[in-house]
């Protein structure tokens, strides 16, 4: 299972760098305006969508066929996707918390949510939203495949 997670992280390396740059750009644009909402939304979306990206990479490489020949049962292979989703959403939650705390300290009284919700509660809400989104997207993608899911959506 660790091997699969390691493989996913290696494959996501360049994607994560790209996402980090995107988030920095969003922060630079929206935080000075006192609007943290787009940044938090995009963070959670990215976190929840990480396993979907790995599914795309695996489909392109035809890895799934090979994975079934490895000494792992299907539940372990699928379990790795959920672990990655939870990991991605948690990292997104920690970054959201950092942004919310920074805004509370550096820009008191500004922000869409941070003015009336404490940063920790805000991060927990967004993590819960991310897990909810991932829990819908991931099984659908695993069941119907990426192409059909994109077509439906």
């Amino acid at each position: 299972m660790n091997g699969l997670l390691y493989k996913d992280l290696l494959n996501l390396n360049s994607t994560m760098k790209y996402l980090a740059v995107m988030i920095l750009i969003f922060c630079a644009i929206f935080i000075p305006m006192g609007n943290e909402l787009p940044v938090l939304i995009i963070l959670v979306l990215f976190g929840a969508m990480l396993p979907i990206s790995t599914i795309t990479y695996d489909t392109t490489a035809r890895w799934d066929k090979y994975a079934v020949s490895l000494p792992m049962i299907r539940e372990e292979i699928v379990g790795t996707r959920y672990q990655l989703m939870l990991g991605g959403v948690c990292v997104a939650g920690i970054v959201s918390l950092t942004i919310a705390v920074a805004m509370t300290v550096l820009m008191p009284g500004k922000g869409v949510f941070v003015t009336f919700i404490n940063p920790l509660a805000l991060a927990v809400i967004f993590v819960a939203c991310g897990i909810f989104l991932g829990s819908i997207m991931l099984p659908l993608t695993l069941k119907f495949g990426l192409r059909r899911c994109v077509t439906f959506s």
């Binding site: 390691y6 290696l10 066929k65 020949s69 792992m72």
Partner: peptide, 29 residues
């Protein structure tokens, strides 16, 4: 599956990885 080796008609490894990465991945499996 721990005791068999399988080779398919196409390479199933990701293009952006290196043989060293494959060793690290399969070494954990």
């Amino acid at each position: 599956k721990e005791r068999i080796g399988v080779v398919f008609d196409e390479c199933c490894f990701h293009d952006n990885l290196t043989p060293a990465d494959i060793s690290k991945i399969l070494g954990k499996i």
